[in-house]
Design a protein around this nucleic acid. Structure first.
Length: 475
RNA sequence: GGGGUCGUGGGGUAGCCUGGACUAUCCUAUUGCGUUCGGGACGCAGUGACCUGAGUUCGAAUCUCAGCGACCCCA
């Protein structure tokens, strides 16, 4: 009876919640009439903009941004055998220009190795050109046949940040993979999204890589979401694309390469990991509106209140805060719900009582209310909220990670989270784990505090000495 | 990859089995006017839809086929 029929589905019903929040908070419009393609609403795009600005800041320290073509000629795309095998079922081909057939078919990049590396071969002449570290933020296309989902599984990935680096030695490239993992850890730490870092099993690495390090987070339903990968490409591509350099002794050497990427799944993670029954919860760093001002218009003092609210807004703007003044003709309560749904971290209310008392009411996204006397207190409040978001996210991820020593334990753990187990490294044992638990072996050589608890223990299947592995269901 | 359910104003539903002057209903949709405003206001008057195509038929939201799209389950 007291249940509101128009309430957002609870986040415990994650699928329903996710679909509803994308629409109601105006992040993506899923009604575009092609499967797997979606439209960014301006509000969603603003979240994307803020998020990618940070990603760019982090990369710009020692990478350069660039832009390569979307179309890749058939003969370049088909050069690297492993790579082709990994992508051939997912590539869109442009075969016609107007009414005439093209002599050379053109692939829409599913990722840009084969677009970039022919040029890398021209650009790189000597060891003095290395290391080369470039990145671009582009759309990529994959003909997904499985269930597509907005921000998570797309036919057009709209926001693929891909970095491609070139180094003299295998070890240099390996160090760069570690550097990439560090950058991504920083990035997700800024977004307050907790992550798990592991090495993808051999059979699951990037097509054409020596190895792949993956960054995953855990969604509210316990399934993992891969939100970043870093690949050591060895000389697979430099061989086929002829990327070599003259070393200090005047000898020609094959270059060693890495690539690493993050897509709009990072936005899905921010939305899902932080959200609650009321709606989005956005870290101030990426929130399109960091502070919303709600004027409390009562009776005859309306003009006075609006003037005070305007002043507040200008002052906040002046100190660099993204602020919105909601002067719409609605009840204040309706505005509270509106902005809470959209994840605004801090709300300021100002009415006649506050003007008389010289105070402002400040309410954070978790509904903690206090009175402040000056907008100078706002930055500190935003910092506190960002911290509170981090604490909550860490705690909820911790709940979903279970150390397991038997198949039974794994089976139960993956119902609502992930299992950390000891695994010997044998494919046969992995297959057994997967078959018996209805989950996947996501990664090995898991890093972080959980790994220490099982590393060196007996493999859950065969009993040989194993290493920490991650088992779970993934998106 | 296999199976299932479904597609009706901006959103949610009913109507379909048994074709007819059959459109209807709810909402945080939307337009105008007025009264309101410290946690989702109210009144009055409006707007707005049968996924696309083909077929059956005197007549299709309803039946048939195909396409496109959505969701769920299993591998």
């Amino acid at each position: 009876m007291e249940e509101k029929t128009d309430a957002l589905p609870p986040i415990a019903d994650f699928h329903a919640w996710y679909n509803e929040i994308l629409r109601r908070a105006e992040i993506m419009d899923v009604r575009y009439p092609v499967k797997g393609l979606y439209v960014w609403y301006p509000y969603g795009f603003a979240i994307r903009k803020n998020t990618y600005n940070r990603l760019r800041e982090i990369l710009d320290v020692d990478h350069q941004e660039t832009l390569f073509p979307l179309l890749i000629p058939d003969h370049e795309f088909m050069k690297e055998a492993e790579h082709i095998k990994g992508f051939e079922e997912e590539v869109y081909w442009v075969t016609r220009g107007g009414t005439s057939e093209l002599d050379v078919k053109l692939a829409l990049r599913p990722t840009s190795e084969t677009s970039m590396y022919p040029m890398y071969a021209l650009w790189i002449r000597s060891h003095a050109d290395l290391p080369l570290k470039l990145y671009q933020v582009v759309n990529t296309f994959r003909y997904e046949t499985k269930h597509t989902r907005p921000l998570i599984r797309l036919r057009e990935i709209t926001s693929f940040k891909e970095a491609h680096t070139v180094h003299c030695t295998w070890d240099d490239a390996s160090a760069q993979v570690e550097e990439a993992v560090r950058l991504y850890t920083d990035f997700y730490s800024d977004l307050r999204v907790p992550v798990l870092i592991s090495k993808r099993p051999d059979w699951d690495k990037f097509p054409g890589a020596d190895y792949t390090i993956a960054v995953d987070t855990i969604m509210p339903d316990g399934r993992t979401l891969q939100i970043g990968t870093a690949h050591h490409l060895g000389t697979h591509f430099s061989k086929t694309f002829g990327i070599d350099y003259e070393d200090m002794n005047g000898e020609q050497q094959l270059a060693h390469q890495t690539c690493y990427g993050i897509s709009e799944r990072c936005i899905a993670a921010v939305i899902s990991v932080h959200g609650d029954d009321t709606g989005l919860v956005l870290p101030p760093l990426v929130a399109p509106v960091q502070v919303v001002i709600i004027p409390i218009i009562i009776g005859k003092r309306g003009d006075e209140v609006m003037a005070a609210a305007e002043t507040l807004k200008e002052e906040l703007k002046a100190i660099g805060i993204r602020v919105e003044l909601d002067s719409r003709d609605m009840r204040p309560g309706a505005k509270y719900y509106h902005w809470e749904l959209r994840g605004v971290p801090l709300r300021l209310e100002i009415g006649p009582r506050d003007i008389d008392a010289g105070t402002i009411v400040a309410v954070d996204r978790f509904k903690q209310k206090q009175q402040i006397r000056s907008i100078r207190e706002v930055p500190a409040l935003l910092d506190e909220i960002q911290e509170a978001i981090a604490v909550r996210a860490e705690a909820s991820m911790e709940e979903k990670i279970v150390i397991c020593r038997t198949i039974e334990e794994i089976r139960s753990a993956v119902e609502s989270g992930v299992a950390v187990v000891s695994w010997c490294g044998d494919r046969d044992c992995a297959d057994r784990i997967e078959a018996d638990t209805d989950a996947s072996l996501l990664g090995t050589d898991l890093r972080g505090p959980h790994a220490a608890k099982v590393s060196g223990d007996a493999c859950v299947i065969c009993g040989k000495v194993g290493n920490a592995a991650l088992v779970g269901r993934s998106y």
